[in-house]
Design a binder for these strands. Structure first.
Lengths: 344, 344
DNA sequence: CTGAAAGCGCTTACAG
DNA sequence: CTGAAAGCGCTTACAG
């Protein structure tokens, strides 16, 4: 009995499955990969034999021969940020559907850690990498990836070239700013976006250009993407300050909400507030957050598919997708109060 | 030039590094793994040669021979939950430090998806799996993992046996409940914890036993771990209801806060509120959340190390660690108001 | 330290 | 469909 158990522990190989099914090794190998050259009956017989023996396909052995590991390396700049957590979920889901496994590395915005993890991923022979670049990443990263012959795509934050999927930050912020202008605001400030990257730049430009077009001047209250810092900043805002805040993203808007409530001010009534991203919490926020919807999960799925295209068709030029944002008008901007007034 | 580039694209193997360094293949192989039998000089010469050629170590080939892939499969029940996102960050960090790469799968609380991803992980020859079991996972999962000879550990949610790291839920909820009793509350209700798993059970018991010991009856308002649902539930709470709410976790407490604020009630002043977990947002919440601190990141790190122990010492019995929680007294419980009164 | 050799479990091309 | 064989890039044990 003990010996039988020991025998069961030995690794089952294709050779063993072939013997059990009464076919040749090459036939079993084809059957396990559902090759259409084989009869259904044969395939079924082999699959049954594999199940009986508890056979587990060895992808690392297959990798050695075929050069495909069916793994993708994912570099997340900060997974504790709910936006990137949802994005990660979208990526993993799409990769899984395509038969790929996701290797995860959270770089915590460290370019050094990012570099080390890329090295790890190369050693693991990933078929490609999906990158949300850490703040401060050199644009030459793309050239290195090319030199390494490593299929790649950037997500949300990107560079001048290379496959990419991300929201149209400029358009998104334009929508939010125009909405506040339509509600009659003239002193609209930009809260957050202290980091220097393509996302901050795009969002700031969307705001600044819209203000310029309206003949109004800009105001910037830079802060990290951090609930606490945004809350502090808003508490120190002068009473005679802006009447509306376009926030860099939803987390900053959450912080602003808490800071305002602490002062006895209600977003939407005493001051208008908009976010960016539309993460899960935003719709059930108090007050429900008016924000620019970019669907982190959807962005992750699109990015994953763009990378898979790179892997499967290396010859075609890399796709760059700008996802069109939409404005979700809820209560933090105060639009519902205007509507009520109009109705009354 | 074009030809030179083409040549540079060919895979560099240990054999090539050995030739470049002017040593034997076996020497180069040892040098690349920093074997102490070699002289520093030789090791350096080989490393330099490897760098010159752009050599990348092939772990999947090494895996085939040595049986170690240096990868760990991580099954996360819901990565968009900030508690589990932070936990994931802790796990990935600890595994990276130990030289392991993390394979990620987000099961979204689906036991079926969990099973499929385990299959994937086995095919990828992971050295072990770290599991935050999806709700509804059969306890027999542990037996299967044993039968597969797959080193494993559970995190937060666990079973009767097997390596495990998680908070002491019973003690944690006892601390929160006792604190509210000390503040004079008699009608304390439990909010959340609708799911059936070891975590809900433990937290409920910690609350219920403490109430029983004080001769008080329990009240349960079950809801999913969801800001929106908790906010709704709290809005419908009768005025003559409980004066304090112990929440299943911080997210539920956040939802409760928003629901109360919407009614014009302030947590800490009009009703006492406690959370569980102490995720990043809790300290900067409005009002700052009194909660049971379990450090998701630290829990992840401990769990990772327990799993690595299983891998390195399969003979020793699996470790089961209950992490001691501490009560973080902030403002949502109203304790600061009592203190002020006492001082005045 | 050298050098030749076997083997991990697949894939793949080939003659039958 | 069969059956034998080569090869992916390592590790590892061994005689020198």
């Amino acid at each position: 009995m003990a010996e039988k158990q020991f025998q069961a522990m030995q690794r089952v190989r294709i050779k063993d499955v072939a013997r059990e099914a009464g076919v040749a090794l090459s036939t079993a190998a084809l059957a396990l990969r559902d090759d259409s050259r084989l009869r259904d009956e044969t395939r079924r017989a082999v699959r049954d034999a594999a199940a009986r023996l508890g056979y587990v396909y060895d992808r690392s052995a297959a990798m050695m021969r075929s050069g495909r590991s069916h793994t993708i390396g994912l570099l997340v700049c900060e997974i504790t940020n709910p936006f990137y957590a949802e994005l990660t979920a979208g990526v993993e889901e799409a990769l899984d559907e395509a038969g790929y496994v996701t290797l995860l590395a959270n770089t915590s915005e460290s370019a050094i850690r990012q570099r080390r993890m890329l090295e790890r991923f190369r050693e693991q022979s990933v078929d490609g990498v999906l990158i949300m670049p850490a703040t401060g990443t050199s644009p030459s990263l793309i050239d290195e990836l090319e030199a390494w012959q490593l299929p790649h795509a950037t997500v949300v934050r990107g560079f001048r070239k290379g496959a990419h999927a991300g929201p149209d930050n400029r358009t998104g912020m334009r929508l939010a700013t125009e909405h506040l202008l339509r509600l009659g605001h003239r002193r609209i400030a930009f809260l957050g976006g202290a980091a220097k990257n393509s996302v901050s730049t795009g969002r700031w430009e969307g705001y600044a250009r819209t203000m310029a077009k309206a003949g109004l001047s800009t105001e910037h209250f830079p802060c990290q993407t951090d609930i606490g810092e945004a809350a502090m900043l808003v508490q120190d805002l002068p009473r005679s300050g802006p009447t509306a805040l376009v926030c860099f993203n939803d987390s900053v808007a959450f912080g602003a909400t808490l800071g305002l409530l602490r002062r006895g001010l209600t977003p939407g009534r005493d001051i208008a507030l908009t976010g960016f991203d539309d993460i899960q919490e935003s719709a059930v926020w108090f007050p429900p957050l008016t924000t620019v919807r970019v669907s982190p999960r959807g962005t992750g799925q699109v990015a994953a598919n763009i990378l898979l295209e790179r892997i499967n068709n290396p010859q075609t030029p890399p796709r760059r997708v700008m996802l069109e944002p939409t404005l979700m008008i809820r209560e933090s901007c105060g639009a519902h109060l205007r509507a009520e007034v109009r109705t009354a």
